[in-house]
Design a protein around this nucleic acid. Structure first.
Lengths: 120, 120
DNA sequence: GCCAATACTTACAAAATTGTAAGCTTCTAT
DNA sequence: ATAGAAGCTTACAATTTTGTAAGTATTGGC
């Protein structure tokens, strides 16, 4: 829970409201979100446990939280199969898919920059 | 200073090393970095005080820190004019400029997504 | 000598994020 | 009846980021 009177919160809100890039970063800038989206672009549908195993090092707590937020932002769908033990799958929404070329660009730029910096 | 033995730090390093997108997000994902870069794309060269005034709400402490890191990552140049009182200007490096189309894409996507969500 | 101007630093506090470990639910197979 | 499976949730602690306010250096003008 964030404190909606903090300078920190106000600054973030102002930025999101005035800058499309800041807005985007807010949606995908968290530690694991990029990787989750990336995984779902490659695999179409993944279960909670599959994502957990793909994202080396993530805790269940983090994964659940990030998935929650991505769903709230309408970037992914959560598909619950009413079985026991439960089976839940995640997939990109149309909006989620619309990020694809952007994320690819970010990925390409990152690889390029890394090389340049490492061979400085 | 970060603790180089924390799980947090290890997770971040692993991600940066294996995922170009995470690497990129690490460079530009901080609260104000996108806006700083954006400002420098529009204005070519800006002084410390100009940036401070453009970025409503930023503190000098934050601005100095973000500029430091951007310089270290070779995305901006710091130009010191040996005068008193001091005059310091910042501009994008070539590498910094190479982000332009990526940042535009992020900005465009953000504006688009915001509209969709607000008219849901 | 004293103040103002600019671009920072610094120390400390507050807030936010992330990690760790345990627990919950619901049915099914043993 | 007991254990186990999957997908979470919770409480609490550690870590990390951000904010606040004050201070520093240098020199020219009053």
């Amino acid at each position: 829970m964030r404190k909606q009177t903090s300078t920190n919160w106000l600054n973030e809100e102002r930025l999101k409201a005035t800058c499309g890039m800041a807005y985007t970063l807010n949606l995908i800038g968290d530690r694991w979100k990029g990787s989750i989206l990336w995984a779902l672009m490659e695999d179409e549908r993944l279960r909670f446990s599959q994502l957990r195993d793909l994202l080396t090092g993530i805790s269940e707590r983090m994964l659940a939280k990030q998935l929650d937020e991505l769903e709230e932002d309408q970037l992914i769908n959560r598909i619950v199969h009413p079985e026991v033990p439960p089976r839940v799958e995640y997939e990109l929404t149309e909006l989620g898919h619309s990020m694809k070329s952007m994320l690819e660009k970010m990925s390409d730029w990152g690889e390029m920059h890394r090389e340049k910096i490492e061979n400085n």
